[in-house]
């Protein structure tokens, strides 16, 4: 019971604590501009903040209003700006007495006039840091975006390591299922025209990921979640083979040897917590594919597998994939305080 009372008292004290705990302090009315404080010669006794133009009330901590005009006069007219104050016991003047070599020689009035180089970030602390974390990204190739003939759904997994907060290197791989659209059959039957079709078996790639965009959303003005957008690109291999549609009676294609495939894409990652996110990614896999020959060799040549392949064609396989991201380790420490 006593502990509970003490706890309540502590909470009440914290609520009543001075405003330095607040993120943004209410501005004081700007002080009236006055002639700048005279430069203090290097030989003059060193001064503290109060001597630079801000005179704290006795017994109160020194407050510096960064919003006030440089060289503003003290609000108390009794504190003369033109007359250098006498060092009080306990201020920097004592240091000069003890060790003249350590005595600061800077002119605080001049220093105060300089522009502040303070770096302000719009997003003060990134919700989910990525630097030196692994990302496991299982996903599903949900939509084939540019192939109306054969869709290529399938599982994909990527493993990335973030070298910096915005740059990662990783590997990815996927397995494909292939769905031949019914419209191919309708076209073949109605027009007697066959389009060479290709099915995919697997792909693997070495990738680089860059995260240039970071943001947050308020959902229904109630909860906030963070997201980022990234670009990804890499090089790898893909295994494909034609689907026999021109002469399926004679042709049966084996999986071709893997072809070099480049990839480039963009993605959106929505963080549900600091280590778990949903992802949406669109990636283009670019490779040169060998298509089925549209002409059938006469006679015995039809069964010769050397006659089955036709032209080589640059192929873009654009896939939209949905997945999740799991970051390891789950937790980290911020390098700088909030």
């Amino acid at each position: 019971m006593n502990q509970a009372r003490i706890g309540l008292l502590v909470i009440a004290a914290m609520i009543a604590a001075p405003s330095f705990a607040h993120a943004q302090k209410k501005k004081k009315p700007a002080a009236k501009p006055a002639p700048a404080a005279p430069a203090v010669p290097p030989s003059a006794p060193p001064v503290d903040a109060a001597a630079a133009g801000v005179a704290p009330p006795a017994g109160q901590p020194t407050e510096i209003d960064a919003d006030a005009p440089a060289g503003a006069a003290p609000t108390d007219p009794a504190a003369g700006a033109a007359e250098p104050p006498t060092p009080e016991p306990g201020d920097l003047g004592d240091i000069c007495k003890i060790d003249p070599a350590a005595c600061p020689t800077m002119n605080l009035a001049e220093e105060a006039k300089k522009d502040l180089k303070e770096q302000m970030y719009a997003v003060q602390q990134i919700y989910a840091l990525r630097r030196h974390r692994f990302e496991i990204q299982p996903a599903w190739n949900a939509i084939t975006m540019n192939d109306q003939f054969v869709s290529h759904p399938g599982p994909v997994v990527a493993l990335n390591f973030y070298v910096t907060n915005v740059l990662a290197v990783g590997v990815s791989g996927g397995y494909y299922f292939n769905n031949d659209s019914t419209f191919n059959f309708q076209t073949r039957r109605a027009a007697r025209v066959a389009v060479p079709l290709t099915e995919y078996q697997w792909q693997a790639a070495l990738n680089f990921t860059y995260v240039p965009i970071y943001g947050k959303f308020a959902g229904f003005s109630d909860f906030i979640f963070h997201y980022d957008a990234y670009v990804v690109g890499g090089v790898g291999a893909i295994s494909t083979r034609p689907i026999a549609v021109v002469d399926p009676d004679n042709r049966s294609f084996a999986w071709d040897k893997p072809k070099i495939a480049f990839n480039a894409g963009i993605g959106l990652r929505i963080f549900f917590n600091r280590w778990f996110a949903g992802t949406l990614e669109v990636r283009d896999y670019i490779f040169i594919d060998r298509l089925e020959a549209t002409a059938i060799a006469p006679g015995e040549g039809a069964t010769d597998s050397g006659t089955w392949y036709g032209e080589q064609k640059l192929t873009n396989n654009v896939q939209a994939q949905l997945g999740v991201s799991i970051f390891l380790p789950f937790a980290w420490e911020y390098r700088l305080p909030k």
């Binding site: 719009a122 959303f217 959902g219 906030i224």
Partner: peptide, 19 residues
């Protein structure tokens, strides 16, 4: 319009967004 937010590009450009 359930989602309102902002995004930063290269931490230089800041844009209000909604989905």
């Amino acid at each position: 319009i359930p989602f309102r937010g902002k995004l930063s590009i290269f931490q230089k450009i800041f844009v209000d967004t909604d989905a």
